[in-house]
């Protein structure tokens, strides 16, 4: 009897009734999607004025920025499997912001 309680007790305790990890996981998914849209537009911008080596380099950097964000989101989404995920690390937050800034700067360089 006590053993049965022992196996059931922690499981009910470890389930967050507010589904906070799940909501956070989906927030990362939404943000990855938004990043994909921004990256597509930035990529389109690089090829806007014709294809030359410089624009291909910028396009590659745009893809790298998007892939970096994808990897970041993937890691965080995996962390959300835990019943009590640890807080986001400032480094991951800085990296996510850096990807956004990179898209803005790379695209701005190709405005015309």
């Amino acid at each position: 009897m006590p053993e049965g309680k022992g196996t059931h007790g922690p499981r009910t305790l470890d389930r967050d009734p507010g589904l906070q990890p799940e909501r956070t996981r989906l927030a990362w998914r939404r943000t990855t999607l938004a990043c994909a849209v921004a990256a597509s537009l930035a990529g389109r911008q690089t090829l806007h004025s014709g294809i030359d080596p410089a624009s291909l380099v910028v396009l590659a950097l745009v893809v790298v920025a998007w892939l970096a964000f994808l990897a970041l989101a993937h890691r965080r989404i995996r962390a959300m499997r835990m019943p009590r995920p640890p807080a986001l690390s400032p480094r991951a937050a800085v990296a996510a912001v850096a990807c956004t800034l990179a898209l803005a700067v790379l695209g701005a360089a190709m405005l015309g």
Binding site: A27, W28, R30, T31, A34, C35, V37, A38, L41, A42, R44, Q45, H48, L88, A93, A96, V97, T100, L103, A104, G107, A108, L111, G112
Partner: peptide, 20 residues
């Protein structure tokens, strides 16, 4: 934080959209 980041990405995307 992620919601603000999405807002930022939407503005960045909007900037490209205006030009294109």
């Amino acid at each position: 934080f992620l919601a603000w980041l999405r807002t930022a990405m939407a503005l960045v995307g909007g900037g490209f959209a205006v030009d294109q």
